[in-house]
């Protein structure tokens, strides 16, 4: 279980003016600015839960992950992960935890992944048979068996991520922090990593905190999401509820046979029925739920329609909307 109370982290960074004179000046005087990365955060995560941490770049996701994993110290507030204070860095805690950073390699670059695993076996004191079972299971799931004897630096980004995942899970941690595990991967590799995380979770049921910019990751893996903006949480609740509460619109997509009148149609479309976007012969209308039939009828009456669909809005659109809007409560 993870419990976070009143967590704040302020970074002090020094500001340097550009150019040569700026550098000379900074030899003598330094201006420091404070950057609040995480601002008074409260969070409870129960055993076996997986949450998705969403936010723009610099919103504080990585800082929060680093504090929870014990890499950095908070400015104030308290954190308990599995009953431990992470930045005490007790071995008992570190034995049960793991952090995967998509942007940062942790394995030893100059050595084949297998050498790194063997060292981790000693560090985590994993019994021989358990270790080889884990290797077998993980490499099978990730389809990376053939690459374990290749120097890590010579692997492709996708392969590297897979061996990083193996390294992080070899000791079957109870808490796993995944910081953008699919960043920079192609669609196939992204899918493979997602599928793997899913099956790993089914098998071992750890607490997982996942940050990602890819909504597919969040949608497929997390039931609960936390949206963070400028260091504060603006939403903490189930993904389903986001849809129910915030999906005020439905999406009408239509293809028409006539090109000429589309701009006129857009101009004359009643504002209360929704917002129209056009690309070639295709139309998209984000229409309020209660007006959607009316909008569809208007559309059919005024244009020659070849094909028409009415769908729920994409979750990514809804979240983008929430992030733009700012602080909201779950009940809203």
């Amino acid at each position: 279980m993870i419990e976070v109370k009143g967590l704040t982290k302020v970074f002090k960074v020094h500001k340097k003016e550009p150019g040569f004179m700026g550098s000379v000046k900074s030899l003598f005087f330094r201006k420091h600015i404070s950057k609040v990365a995480v601002d008074n955060i409260n969070l409870t995560i129960n055993a076996g839960e997986i949450i998705g941490l969403i936010g723009a770049n610099g919103a504080g996701k990585t800082t929060l992950t680093k504090i929870l994993s014990g890499i950095i110290h908070p400015t104030s507030g308290s954190v308990s992960v599995l009953g431990f204070n992470p930045w005490d860095r007790k071995n008992e805690y570190r034995q049960q935890m793991s952090l995967i950073m998509g942007q940062k390699a942790q394995l030893w670059w100059d050595l084949p992944a297998m050498d790194g695993f063997l060292l981790l076996k000693e560090i985590y004191q994993i019994p021989e048979n358990e270790f080889y079972e884990s290797i077998e299971y993980l490499s099978e799931c990730l389809m990376i068996k053939d690459q374990l004897k290749v120097q890590v630096r010579k692997l492709s980004l996708g392969e590297r991520m897979k061996v990083e995942l193996m390294a992080a899970l070899i000791h079957k941690p109870k808490v796993v922090f995944l910081d953008e595990p699919t960043i920079g991967l192609d669609l196939m590799a992204q899918k493979a990593v997602r599928e793997f995380i899913k099956s790993y979770r089914k098998e071992f049921n750890p607490i997982m905190i996942l940050t990602s910019h890819y909504m597919e990751d969040i949608e497929e893996l997390c039931e609960r999401v936390v949206i963070i903006k400028d260091g504060s949480f603006i939403y903490d609740g189930s993904l389903e509820k986001i849809k129910d509460n915030y999906a005020k619109n439905k999406l009408i997509t239509a293809t028409t046979t006539e090109e000429k009148d589309l701009q006129d149609f857009k101009a004359s479309f009643p504002k209360e029925l929704g917002e129209v976007t056009i690309s070639e012969l295709k139309l998209e209308i984000h229409s309020p739920r209660e007006k959607v039939m009316e909008a569809a009828t208007y559309l059919m009456n005024n244009l020659a329609i070849k094909d028409l669909n009415i769908n729920e809005e994409q979750i990514s659109d809804i979240i983008e909307h929430i992030m733009r809007q700012g602080k909201v409560s779950e009940q809203q």
Binding site: S69, I71, N91, Q95, L99, I123
Partner: peptide
């Protein structure tokens, strides 16, 4: 370059 993370994360 942040490689120090290793030493903070692994029980060593």
């Amino acid at each position: 370059d942040g490689s120090l993370n290793k030493f903070l994360l692994y029980p060593m």
